[in-house]
């Protein structure tokens, strides 16, 4: 029973992180229909930026965190401006391959500067943050990650529901031509969604780094986990991304705990194929409201 709770807690907090990364991914997809294969590398960029700022530049933690968020934001903005904007209107395969190429470039750069070894952050979370749940001790990292995850979720929920920029972003995702006819700055929306997605990715990267340590290969592999998550949740549903993330996180930890650790990485994809065959638009994907 304790083992079960332990797994449940781990699964939930990992899942929340998956959900957050997936949210950034969905945001890009919703507004500009780009399938971002470089998402894992965006996570890794954030994680390593934080590493540089904390260990080498010696910034205090909260400042390093904020600077990393800002840096990721700028990175996302730049990626959209330099690489994606010229491709607006090109066919799907080019856009996909461009992000694959970008992933490769980022990965190459990170490997060049940091190598393929495991790096760790200095211990900075206060030990008092851990929570005792019955017989199970939840380590501070998981508490912190869940906390950050929930805070970001609420913030984004409010942003999309109430702020003008959020509503504009949703309108572009909904009907681009109509948004254009009303003077919504569509290109600005694209850039903004990349920037926000990169920022969220950077944050998830930091938290993942705190949990597992940072290694270029592992973090960028997590970027690919985004796919089962978003398919489960439906490619165009932000809420679905979170739920999908939690389901995949739980699925992984339970498979790992009860069946076999080696199955961990393949189960999400097996689930994915099954879902695609049964419900092609995911569990929470918007059913296209069609009227003629």
């Amino acid at each position: 029973m304790d083992f079960f709770i332990q797994l449940l807690v781990n699964g939930l907090s990992i899942g929340l992180l998956y959900g957050l990364s997936a949210m950034g991914f969905v945001m890009i997809f919703k507004s500009s229909s780009v399938l971002n294969f470089a998402h894992g590398e965006l996570l890794a960029m954030g994680a390593f930026l934080f590493l540089v700022l904390t260990t080498w530049a010696g910034l205090p933690i909260y400042l390093a965190f904020l600077v990393t968020l800002a840096g990721s934001f700028v990175l996302g903005f730049a990626v959209e401006r330099l690489f994606l904007r010229p491709l607006i209107g090109e066919s799907l395969i080019f856009v996909i391959m461009l992000t694959v190429g970008l992933a490769s470039i980022f990965k190459g750069l990170l490997l060049f500067f940091f190598g393929g070894n495991l790096h760790t952050y200095p211990e900075f979370l206060p030990a008092g943050l851990g929570v005792q749940l019955g017989n199970v001790f939840v380590p501070p990292v998981y508490v912190a990650s869940s906390f950050i995850g929930i805070v970001f979720l609420v913030l984004f929920g409010l942003f999309f529901k109430f702020s003008p920029q959020g509503i504009f972003m949703r309108s572009v995702a909904d009907n681009q031509t109509a948004a254009l006819s009303l003077g919504v700055h569509v290109k600005k929306v694209f850039a903004l969604s990349w920037a926000i997605a990169a920022m969220v990715a950077g944050m998830s990267g930091i938290v993942l780094g705190v949990i597992n340590g940072i290694n270029v290969h592992e973090i960028s592999a997590i970027g690919l986990k985004v796919f089962p998550v978003v398919i489960l949740g439906g490619l165009d549903s932000i809420g679905g991304a979170i739920i999908g993330g939690i389901i995949i996180g739980l699925l992984e930890t339970f498979t790992c705990g009860y069946i076999s650790p080696s199955l961990r990485d393949v189960v999400p994809y097996a689930v994915l194929v099954c879902i695609l065959l049964v419900k092609p638009y995911g569990l929470f994907g918007l059913v296209d409201i069609e009227r003629v």
Binding site: F94, G101, L102, G108, G115
Partner: peptide, 21 residues
Amino acid sequence: GLNMASLRELAFGLAIVLFIL
């Protein structure tokens, strides 16, 4: 030279991106 190995990824990605653009 060890780091050069990583540049393989970089060059490969760059080739794809430049061709697409």
